[in-house]
Simulated scan of single mutants.
Amino acid sequence: MAGSGSAHLRSDEETLLTVEGLVVVHHTGGGSFKAVAGISFDLARGETLGIVGESGCGKSTTARAVLRLDPIAAGRIRYGEEQINHVPEKRMRELRREMQMIFQDPVASLNPRRPVKDLVVEGLAIAGAPAKQQAEKSAAMLAEVGLGNDRFAGMYPRQLSGGQAQRVAIGRALALDPRLLICDEPVSALDVSVQAQILNLLERLKKEFDLTIVFIAHDLGVVRTISDNVLVMYLGKMCEFGDSVEVYDKPAHPYTRALLDSVPLTDPDKGFAGPALAGDIASPLRPPEGCRFKSRCPIAQNICGVEEPTVREVRPGQYAACHFPLN
């Protein structure tokens, strides 16, 4: 489950990743602010969790904190049987072999001076794997991600399309045989047709490699096709969590409803599913009192401006932080 102060729905044996009350503080020239302000969730083995929200809501920061790439100000993160908040960096480097990340900009994430065949096994090379093992693994992973043609092995990132570069990045992540794969907006920089190819590839590899996935996106339409559960974030807070089918069919939080309404319809003449969300996101340096979504919420009332809503179960397995959850 997700949510502040609520009980977990799964046993420890079922759960691969548990995040409890995660707080991450960013420091800027204008002051400090909580980029992530108390997020909690469980991720079961073999499950895909979609994390959704507008730019700057804390999605990527949450992912980076799980890998301890961003410092954790408060809260706890448990991976498997280990609390990883304070494990030594040497141990964390070992754990990162099991917790790999795919980034938004595939070309920028690849070393421009190395050929594809070497990029795929960078992690193995750092770990000191023999050259023969690296060569065999490189060929195998390139075949897995649809780049098995020999011509790709000697190419450099600048010679690849965005979709091809992302396939290389996926192969590089899987070369270390991870258990957890964190995908940080891996298709947002790609054309729609290529997005579908990458999503289908991830779905196949998830089954083949028995992966557990955190999939981050700002597009609810993309997340729907790949996620078992969805976590919706706004200004560092959790708005809603639940089974992806339930959340899409019956959103409980007005912000989730607004995100769904912003998805373009398949008929270009009909525009979007619903009206555009009014107003701008408040500054994270000065978050509003009460509910952080209140200034943009069409159903906000007086209590929303003075009392922060707590996360509560509004339907079986579906949670929302809203004083007036939708029916």
Rank of each mutant, 00 (worst) to 15 (best):
G305S: 15
L17T: 09
L69V: 10
Q195H: 09
G290I: 00
V87C: 05
R312E: 14
I281M: 14
R68K: 15
R257C: 00
E20F: 05
V116E: 03
P284E: 07
V19K: 06
E122P: 02
E54G: 09
V24Q: 10
P298R: 15
T310N: 03
D269P: 01
S188Y: 09
V230F: 05
A140L: 13
G3K: 04
V232F: 09
D243G: 06
G171D: 05
D105T: 05
V247A: 03
E246Q: 05
V36E: 06
V230Y: 07
K250A: 14
G146L: 14
R167K: 08
T256W: 12
T212L: 10
P251S: 13
G30P: 07
N327D: 14
I182E: 10
S227P: 07
L16V: 13
V214P: 00
M238P: 04
Q133I: 01
V121P: 01
V245E: 15
S6V: 10
T62S: 15
G148Q: 12
V121H: 05
H8E: 06
E54I: 11
L17V: 10
I84D: 09
S161E: 13
R114Q: 15
G46M: 13
G128Q: 08
V311I: 15
L176A: 10
G279C: 08
V23R: 12
R224T: 11
H27M: 00
F209E: 12
Q133S: 02
M238F: 01
I299W: 12
K250I: 07
A300C: 09
E240P: 02
K270A: 15
L181N: 07
A189W: 05
E203V: 13
L259F: 10
G21T: 06
R93S: 05
G290M: 04
I72P: 00
L176N: 03
A278L: 11
K206N: 08
E289A: 14
L22H: 09
F215A: 02
V145Q: 03
G274H: 11
E246S: 06
H27C: 05
G163F: 02
